[in-house]
Amino acid sequence: MSAQTAGGAAAGTARTGPKIIVTAVLVVVAAYFLVPIYWVIVAASKSSEELFTTNGFWFGQHFRLFSNLADVFSYDGHIFIRWFANSVLYAGVGAVLATYFAAAAGYAMAKYDFRGRNAVYAAVLGGVLVPGTATALPLFLLFSQIGLANTYLAVLLPSLVSPFGLFLCRIYAASTVDTALMESARIDGAGELRIFHVIALRSLTPALVTVFLFQLVSIWNNYFLPLIMLSDAKLFPITLGLNNWRSQVDRLPEFYQLTTGGVLVSVIPLAIAMIVLQRFWRGGLTEGAVKG
């Protein structure tokens, strides 16, 4: 074997080592996230008895997934469908409006110079440091005084504010929205709102997708705020409804399979949103990557 061949083999081995390590780490991380989902699928396919008498990571003797899901959707006058629709309303409308408001505010702070801009931005950043649980009780007292407690708006209105989304949109707008292009649009007679909707929003697409997904997951998984605000079961989101079922398993064991089946259904919308929207991230990351 020549010295050149030996050197090439050594270089190939040196490059292969880090790849194996990175691949192994990614496999472990993927397993960390996928194993709980696999367990939920397996658990949702069993009866209440099989949940405790069979291997937790393998299916039981009878595959009951579809019958369990039918029980989930039909129980108590189809109340689960109502909870699911409520979560879609809270998370869908809340995430869309929160993303739009964050984009508008972040764009304005990045591209317009006005008095008090830095003070407003500092106040918004301070909101990132305040946990949602700390503001839930004051919000409940406020909403009770104005008659909004135990309504859809009690959960929806607090979801419209995203300090993190504003922060991200401001940083992204400052680096991607071309000021010269904005000036050209003004010279052509375009108004500020049209510039924002036509030019800025297109440039902010990757940031908007990120904010939307963060808000969607946050609102969909929110438990404490609905717990404080709502007392009518018909207004419950899916998280509060499933916890209501789980609290009854000691008295009625059949709620085990209802809860596991409901958990499986609750994961599906988030998985679909992630799969559908990830292409916008790839598109944003490759912008400007064309060789000159």
Rank of each mutant, 00 (worst) to 15 (best):
Q215A: 12
Y172T: 05
L216R: 00
V161N: 04
V130Y: 05
F164G: 03
P138R: 03
S162C: 12
R282P: 00
V42P: 02
V72G: 03
W245C: 02
V155F: 02
G126C: 05
V265S: 05
A154H: 01
E287R: 14
L166W: 08
Q257D: 05
L129Y: 13
A122T: 14
N150Y: 07
G261K: 09
V290P: 01
K234N: 15
R186C: 07
S184I: 08
D232P: 02
E183H: 10
I20S: 06
G261M: 07
F214H: 06
F214N: 04
T133M: 14
L168Q: 01
K46Y: 04
C169E: 14
A95P: 01
A95H: 03
G77W: 10
A44P: 01
L225W: 00
V263F: 06
G284P: 09
F66D: 04
I275D: 02
S48A: 13
V124R: 04
T135E: 03
T176V: 13
T133I: 15
I187S: 08
N222W: 00
H197I: 07
L69R: 09
P131C: 11
N243V: 12
Y223N: 04
D178L: 02
L213E: 06
A200I: 04
D188M: 11
L258A: 06
H62P: 00
R115Q: 13
F280R: 12
V96L: 11
V72H: 06
S218E: 07
S175E: 14
L166K: 01
G165S: 03
V35L: 14
H62R: 13
G17L: 15
S203C: 14
L208H: 06
I37R: 01
L230Q: 10
G60H: 05
R82A: 06
G8K: 10
S159H: 03
A110R: 05
S144E: 12
L213A: 07
D188V: 08
T260H: 02
R202E: 09
I272C: 10
P158H: 06
G8T: 03
F33I: 12
G283T: 05
T260Y: 11
P253F: 01
I187G: 07
T53Q: 10
A91I: 05
N118Q: 15
T259W: 05
A85N: 05
Y100H: 07
V267K: 02
A136C: 08
A289T: 08
Q4V: 11
L69M: 09
F196I: 08
L227C: 03
L139I: 13
A273T: 12
A105D: 00
D113T: 13
W39F: 06
R279W: 09
P158G: 08
G189D: 07
R194Q: 14
L89M: 15
F101L: 15
A180G: 09
H78W: 08
W245I: 06
T16L: 14
T151Y: 00
V155L: 05
R279V: 11
A233L: 11
E254G: 01
A98E: 01
V22R: 11
V93Y: 00
I187L: 15
T239D: 04
T176I: 06
R82G: 12
L225H: 01
Q248N: 12
R64L: 15
F143D: 00
G56A: 12
V128L: 12
L89Y: 14
G126H: 07
L277A: 11
I199E: 13
V130G: 07
Y100L: 15
V93K: 00
D178S: 10
L204I: 11
F212T: 01
M274T: 07
V265G: 05
I146M: 03
D250F: 10
P226H: 06
T99S: 07
N150K: 07
